[in-house]
Design a protein around this nucleic acid. Structure first.
Lengths: 220, 220
DNA sequence: GAAAATGGTTAAGAAATTGTTAAGATTTTG
DNA sequence: CAAAATCTTAACAATTTCTTAACCATTTTC
């Protein structure tokens, strides 16, 4: 059940796309301005974004660079090669010009989702005594529910998703703060500390290992 | 240095693409028929395939389903929606119609390579009994894990990355200290000494060789 | 071969990084 | 708007790493 966010201000086009996607089994979310999209993006994780370029509030181009880790298909009336190239190099995964063919749009959506599910092997949100539920704030430790804050959830998810790797402090800081620069390592340390304490409530095992000067990883 | 395989029987188009890619720093390989492509695919791993549909020997469509784990961009004169959809659902990652815009082709190639390099496991540096796990900041000596400090890791990585070359003391000092000048060679000597001691814990072999007055290298 | 320069090892003190706690600031929620 | 939850900041202790300095070995230079 894939979640797709449609960002398009023209209501008639918006409705056509929404109808098409719903008919094909997708769960659809709607934004009618760039700023609205930004708010929605902070709230929920989507599997794909369909993005118009000419938007009120915040343009599609501006929005594009703010989106991370979600595939974006740009759907635009701008047919110039420069526009396409610009978007593709700014992070868009595909660029379709309006008017578009329904079947082609669906096929290109499939491609993006197919790519994605390859990467995110619906894998190990489970590791030994830990299991991360897909609800953005619950961790099971020895099958006991532990409530995590949004930040703690983001951290442990990143660690579990790459549990053989060391995740650098900077990478984790990126996850935490939407605006990059001014966030403090100190803050990250506190989050990690709190996470450890919550896990420690239910198990003796230490799961989060510090790699001195680099970052953190799941102990193996 | 990304390797791209062009599969296209029309020689003039083939040459245009080849030239374009070479100008942009790609390493290009050529196949002029479906069957030739198949042979090449068994021999070598490519990062991307550009695929024409109308090919002698084996059609592009037939080839497409045989390709696994390499992104494919279809480049075809067939503009019908059915052809596009068919290819995209059969495994193509993108579909561009001829005549194509050079910049757009390059951009779409970038997209595919960008996607791929995300989940590309960084290759580990291996040399005899030493193995540097890149995503892990660990050194294996005879398959035993050795804990290195940030500085030691930086040094051994530099040495292993260029194991035929001598790495000057200044180069290594640059790695260690952000401000160049005031760092001490003495300090570097200590780090090297500690590194050697840690490696010596697991093997008799001396791996780090001193080049008098110049620097260090991996013993060959 | 002796003096000078460079390299290797060790140990101790300096510096940097981390873990924890608690209080204040900020955001979210009712 | 107030209460609750969350995040950040600051302080401190504990730990790890880095640098310094001393001493000796080795190599080069004269």
């Amino acid at each position: 059940m894939k979640k797709i966010l449609i960002i398009e201000d023209d209501e008639s086009i918006h409705n056509i796309i929404e109808e098409l996607l719903k008919e094909n089994g997708y769960v659809v979310f709607n934004a009618y301005s760039g700023t609205e999209a930004l708010l929605l993006l902070e709230k929920e994780k989507y599997d794909l974004i369909l993005l118009d370029l000419m938007l009120p509030g915040l343009t599609g181009e501006e929005l594009l660079v703010k989106v991370k880790d979600i595939p974006v298909i740009v759907l635009s009336a701008k047919i110039s090669s420069d526009d396409k190239v610009n978007c593709l190099l700014s992070g868009a995964n595909d660029y379709i010009t309006k008017p578009f063919d329904s079947k082609e749009l669906l096929a290109r959506i499939e491609v993006q989702l197919r790519n994605r599910s390859k990467n995110n092997i619906i894998e190990n949100l489970k590791y030994r005594e830990l299991e991360l539920l897909n609800d953005n704030h619950t961790l099971l430790v020895c099958n006991k529910k532990v409530n995590l804050t949004k930040t703690e959830y983001a951290i442990i998810k990143q660690l579990l998703l790459n549990r053989t790797q060391v995740i650098t402090k900077n990478k984790l800081l990126d996850l935490i703060s939407i605006d990059t620069e001014d966030c403090d390592e100190n803050s990250l340390r506190v989050h990690i500390s709190n996470l450890r304490k919550k896990i420690r409530n239910y198990t003796e095992t230490e799961y989060i290992e510090s790699i001195w000067g680099i970052g953190f990883k799941i102990k193996s």
